[in-house]
Design a protein around this nucleic acid. Structure first.
Lengths: 105, 105
DNA sequence: ATAACATTTGGTTATTTTGCTAAATAAGAA
DNA sequence: TTCTTATTTAGCAAAATAACCAAATGTTAT
């Protein structure tokens, strides 16, 4: 693995790592159709507001979402639509695991 | 978020988390064309054999790769080909980030 | 059985991540 | 200005992760 390769792989890993949390995946899902303010997002999730804010910050730093202020609220939107297709492949892995499990029984 | 949803999102996050490491991404890349034994994989990477083995174990537990023994060697292969397409979307995120950065300069 | 090889597992330590509470900012309303 | 609402930041403790070394396992050859 070259130095150049390592840099590239680390960048990819950073994006994946940002997605790799149930709450953050949920947030991405919520932003699928339309942008949302933080208050709307915290409503649906059972964790603290500050925790949600931190998760949003992680996603934003990874370039997965972006934000804009409108009055008191801050609205978040999805930056890269193809992420949703990506997740369907993740689902494939899970289904395959499930059927492999089933085969063992 | 319902209990059911949380379970599903946690499963997805687990797959993404397994991928979210430069060495593991490199390993997945190596398995893209053909299966490989551990000795072939450790050759290309600068870390300890035991560390590589542990990374392979993480990928295997996530159902991303699988292994078979042939004599003294253990061969690993990719379980879900669509993962490679998935990573091209991750690359999109990175490129978009780069061009956003460039715009600022 | 012993030796040599390929790989995994266990133990340790350093680092990172997570989620909470409390405090800080930012914007609008009174 | 002061109050209220919306959101972020800081600080902390618990849990998870990563990398190394050493020891254990499984396989083939002697």
């Amino acid at each position: 693995m070259t130095e150049q390769q390592l840099l590239q792989l680390t960048a990819r890993a950073a994006v994946l790592k940002a997605l790799a949390h149930p709450t953050r995946l949920w947030l991405v899902e919520q932003l699928q159709q339309q942008e949302r303010c933080v208050c709307e997002l915290t409503d649906g999730v059972n964790t603290d507001i500050s925790t949600v804010s931190k998760h949003l910050s992680v996603l934003r730093h990874a370039g997965i979402i972006s934000s804009r202020r409108e009055g008191k609220q801050i609205y978040y939107r999805l930056q890269t639509p193809c992420l949703l297709k990506m997740l369907s492949c993740v689902e494939n892995v899970i289904e395959q695991n499930a059927s492999a499990q089933a085969k063992l029984v």
